[in-house]
Every structure is written in C-alpha cells, then in structure tokens.
Design a protein around this nucleic acid. Structure first.
Length: 560
RNA sequence: GCGCCAGUAGCUCAGCAGGACAGAGCAGCGGACUUCUAAUCCGCAGGUCGCAGGUUCGAGCCCUGCCUGGCGCGCCA
C-alpha cells in the first residue's frame, strides 16, 4: 500500500518537474509515512519540502503542483480506488487520506501473508556478515557482552528478514598476552592449591572462576604440572583454561538464544600464516615500514591520527597485526556488507582498522563498525561495576538465571545501541506493568485466550472470504489497521539504519493499542459477522506480535 | 590536551534522513474487575529539549563555543 502510494507520488513529482522544466534531483527520495495523527490524514509526505530545497522554490506552491498532477495520474493508475484526498498542509506537506476500504484491503493483505507480513527484499540477497560479542576467552561473559549478544543477534535476524543472507561470526581472541596471563593466573592458583608460595601479579585474573579452573587442573593433573618447566606448565594451563572458558561462553550464548555460524580463531590466523601474508603485502605496497626496530602501519595516510605499531621491536605482533589479517580474510570472503559490533571502549580503534583495510587495497565502504555503549548494572539503588580482571562482575549467565532469557533480551533492546543502558535487575525481574516484556507477551497471551474462549463457546469464525470487514468502524480498529500497515516500514527503516531497537518500540505501541481495544470493545459478543471480523483483526495483530517477538528472540506465550 | 557517545517531564527514555501542536512508561493524584486473563485500561497533573550564539521559510535534530556525565587516546587488550 505504502509502495503503491510511493510510486504514484514519484510519478506525480516527475510530471511536476517536467512541467516546470526542472530536473528531478538524482537523490530524491521523499518520505511517505503512516500518520498517526488523524488530523493529518493517513499518510503524509515531505516530497514538496525536499524538492523545494533542491529547486529553490516555494514548497507550498510545489506541493500544489504535485497534488494537481496526482489527480491526473490518479485516474490512469487506478489509484482512485484507494485514495480519497490529497491535500497540501502546513509548510508544504502533502497529506493523503485513503478510503476506508484501503485499510480493509491491507488487513486482508496481512492475513494473507500471516507471520511473513513485513518481510522485505531490501537486501536483495546480498551477503552480510555480522561479527559480534567476540569476547576474549579469559573469563565468562558479563552483562555488557549480553547487550552485544542481544543487539547483534536481533540485528542479524532483522537483516535476514529484510532479504539479506546473514552469517553470524564470533572472533575468538585466543592468541596474545591476555591469554598468556590467563594461563599464568590459572597456574598460580593451581600452585596455591598445592600449597606453594605464590606472588599473584597485579594485572592477573582474580576472578573466582580461575580458582575453579585450577581446581579442575588439580583433579586432572595432580602434581604433574609442578614437575614441568614453568613455561610449559603455563602453556597447558592456558590451553585448558581457554578451552573451558570458551566452552562456557558457547553454553551461555546458547542459553541466551544466540548461535553463531562461525567461530573464528585468532590463533588460526597465525597458524595459517595469514598474518604473515597480510604483512608481506603491506610491506610490498609500502604501507608497512620499519622504525625504531618495530614495524608500523602507515595508517596516517588513511585518516588515522598517527601510524600504529603492528610488530613490536621484540618481534611480538600487536593486536592490530591479527586484526589486519582478520579483516583481509573478511574482505576476501567477499561479503557485500561487513558489520563489526564492538564495545564502545574500542571506538578509538575504528580509524586504524579502517585504515588497515584501505592499506590492503580495499574500498572500506562494505565495512560498518557499530558501537554498543556500556551497561550500568543496577540492583535496587546499588550500582555494580564491571571489570574482568578484578573479577568483580555479574555474569550474563547469572542475569539470565535471575530474570529469564525473555526479559533479559527485551531489556537489552529497550535502548538505542549508542546510548548508555541502565539495566535494573529488580525491574527486569518484576512481573508487573513496569516491565514491558510482559506487557507485550501478555497481549499475545490475551489473544490466544480469546481464541480459546471462542472455541469453548462455539462461536465459529466465518471463512475469510465471507467476512465483510466494513463492520470494523471503531476508531481504535482503524488505528490498529494503520498501525499494522506501518510494520513493513518499521522493518525497512530499522534494517536500513541498523537499529533493531525500533522493533521494540514499535511492538510496545502496537500492543498498547491492542490493550486499549481489548478494554473498550468486546470481540465475541457481537453478531457473527462482527465477531468474525474482529477475530481476524486479532489474528493479524497476533501475527505481527509473534513475528516481532521472534525477531527479538523472545517467546510468544499463549497463556500467562 | 585531543577524540567518541550522551545531556528532552520528579525518574528511565523515544523522537524514524531538519518539518505540522515535543511523546511514552514509571513515580504522584483520581477512577474501572458478577464481563474474552486487572501482568490490563481510563482521566488529571507534569517540559525555557544542558547553556549561548549561528545556518534555514522552519532546529530537540545541522554548525561554533562553553558546561556536566561516561568512555577512549600505549611497542595494553
């Protein structure tokens, strides 16, 4: 419906331009949006306002021309069937009012599509990789990772629903100094258990889980690790601890409803010589040079503030080295869109990775680096700070345990990704009106319960073909139909802007309308025609609610 | 010192690519269950959109400066 209107509008604007002897601006893409405010009609467009800017003309005047052109196009395109009026308003908006029949048609359309309503081909089958979470396997996932997990997973769902071919990837930082520190920390705890004197390093991993890992090593190896060279023993500890932690991470994500297609190991980049190859290439094209004994990426030539060390003077690579190889690997896999979802604390890293990609000879456009801001965990009025090394954090698993997967996921998506999030455990746990996840799920359950009631009382729903929807005349009913009709646009804009939280806000609004409707109108008590029509309206609502919950990875209960 | 994100109602936040009167939830006050689930709904009250300039026919949104909070700026990750 929106697309039909958009096409008509586009024709009308073209006609107008031709008449005025002006070129249609190349980047002309007017908004056509569902209007919630009755007074402004059903749909409205800012076409004339945008055009006015480009053509340096009076917007109201242009709008007048467009509306005039519209009337003529109208007849030829059969738009008369759905369009009631098109008028100029305010500073130059064009407001469209549809005949009510148009909404009824859209309702039938929703019912025909069912839970597939809103699926789009925006992505045109393009391949997109979403890399997210990617936490070091040096400790369990905490609440901050949970936000990335939820955000990335829903973004991936959303893109898949929008016609992209999506792959989810987790980059395992299983090489480097932090893993070495994990090995050392675990080894020391192991020694401690065997009553050796230890000197625990300042920046070691102090979490309880390290002691637990040491305990397992003690069971498995007994005293044998003490008999080895310390270096060798630490290497074993590192491998054992890393594997165990990674296994835990997979499990936590699984429990959180997040699954990855690929677990990509940093270590493998060294083993396959991918790092070496990438650095060779950079040396060849002059983007990697030696200075003070170290190797530097000429990142300042590609927008970074300064050049960055890739290989230290002592020969050990920095993180950037593997990141260069990793991104080369990503680009070599020829995705149309590569999304890196990082914690906001890594934002300073963006210019150098973008620079690295360009230094390798790739156009950086397919790479989108998104940031997820920090999570402040709040328990009542107490603020919990999170630091992996200090071991003072609440894990994702604990949160899922305490508030449930549904509430946790929903809460994470209750804010824009780039805004700080206060996650209140007490609130998420509450089964009350304050908690929006139940508000939404309750709507789904309520509809299911009306179906039950209908079945019990034998009030049969007439076949769709025989139902005359024109008996749906209540303002709230029209409003619900409009709200449903807005769904494809919400999906489209959420996918285009990579902002999954818009789904959350939309669904809260939709079920709000539904709850109001429920409280003011009886579904089953009317005559069979009306009852059937209303049951179908409910079914359309249920489909969209179920679909959005599915995209959010939240269950859609039939009773609560 | 430089950079990134934020500053909207008492609180937590929306505000879609500058547009039509700034919205929601919670908290506060007052109402609605012999009814398809009250995990719901209705009503009232509540805001110089951090401050000051600027661009524009039009700014919560863009530009400049300042203030406040968070986070980064390493041959740490």
């Amino acid at each position: 419906m929106r697309n039909r209107l958009r096409r008509l509008l586009y024709d009308a604007v073209s006609t107008t331009c031709r008449k005025l002897g002006q070129e249609l601006p190349a980047d002309f893409s007017p908004l056509v949006e569902v209007q919630e405010n009755e007074q402004f009609g059903d749909f409205s467009s800012n076409a004339a306002l945008i055009l006015a800017k480009a053509l340096h003309r009076n917007p109201r005047e242009l709008a007048g021309h467009i509306v005039e052109a519209f009337d003529k196009e109208d007849v030829g395109n059969g738009a008369a069937l759905l369009l009631d009026t098109a008028e100029v308003a305010g500073p130059g908006f064009i407001n469209f009012r549809l005949v009510r029949q148009a909404w009824l048609e859209e309702l039938r359309h929703v019912l025909a599509e069912g839970e597939e309503y809103g699926r789009s081909h925006l992505g045109q089958g393009k391949r997109v990789q979403v890399e997210f979470v990617s936490a070091n396997p040096t400790g369990p996932l905490h609440v901050g990772h949970g936000r990335s997990a939820a955000y990335g997973d829903v973004l991936a769902n959303l893109l898949a629903f929008s016609g992209y071919q999506v792959e989810r990837e987790y980059y395992i930082n299983d090489a480097g100094a932090q893993m070495a520190m994990l090995g050392r920390s675990t080894f020391l705890r192991y020694c401690e258990l065997l009553e050796q004197e230890i000197d625990f390093p300042e920046n070691g991993y102090r979490g309880e889980y390290v002691r637990a890992l040491a305990e397992e090593l003690k069971t498995k190896y007994g005293l044998r690790l003490l008999e080895l060279e310390e270096e060798q023993a630490q290497a074993i500890c590192r491998r054992e601890a890393g594997d165990a932690i990674l296994q835990g991470i997979r499990q936590d994500l699984e429990n959180f409803g997040v699954r990855f297609d690929t677990w990509f190991s940093e270590q493998s980049l060294f083993e396959s010589a991918a790092v070496e190859t990438a650095l060779e290439k950079l040396k060849e094209n002059g983007n990697l040079y030696e200075k003070d004994g170290a190797w530097w990426l000429r990142s300042s030539a590609y927008g970074d503030d300064e050049d960055r060390v890739v290989v230290r003077a002592d020969g050990r690579p920095t993180y950037l080295a593997s990141d260069i190889a990793y991104h080369q690997h990503k680009f070599a896999r020829a995705y149309d869109l590569i999304i890196d979802l990082w914690g906001a604390d890594h934002h300073g890293y963006i210019p150098r990775v973008r620079a690295a990609v360009q230094a390798l000879g790739y156009a950086p456009d397919p790479l989108k680096i998104l940031l997820v801001q920090f999570v402040n965990l709040v328990r009542g009025d107490q603020r919990v700070s999170m630091s992996t090394r200090a071991g003072a954090f609440v894990t994702l698993a604990e949160v899922v345990d305490e508030v449930g997967r549904d509430a946790a996921r929903f809460f994470y998506l209750l804010r824009r990704g780039d805004a700080h999030l206060d996650f209140d455990l007490e609130l998420a746990k509450q089964q009350s009106a304050e908690n929006p996840v139940y508000y939404v799920q309750y709507a789904h359950a309520r509809i299911a319960s009306i179906y039950d009631k209908a079945r019990e009382t034998g009030s049969r729903r007439l076949p769709l073909r025989e139902v005359d929807f024109s008996c749906l005349q209540q303002p709230l009913e029209i409003k619900l139909m409009k709200r449903l009709a807005a769904f494809p646009g919400v999906v489209e804009s959420a996918a285009a802007t990579l902002e999954p939280h818009r789904l959350t806000f939309y669904i809260i609004d939709l079920v709000g309308d539904f709850h109001r409707y429920y409280n003011s109108h009886r579904v089953l008590d009317g005559d069979p025609q009306l009852a059937s029509a209303r049951l179908y309206l409910l079914e359309a609502i249920r489909c969209v609610v179920a679909r959005v919950l599915q995209l959010l990875g939240v269950s859609a209960p039939t009773s609560m």
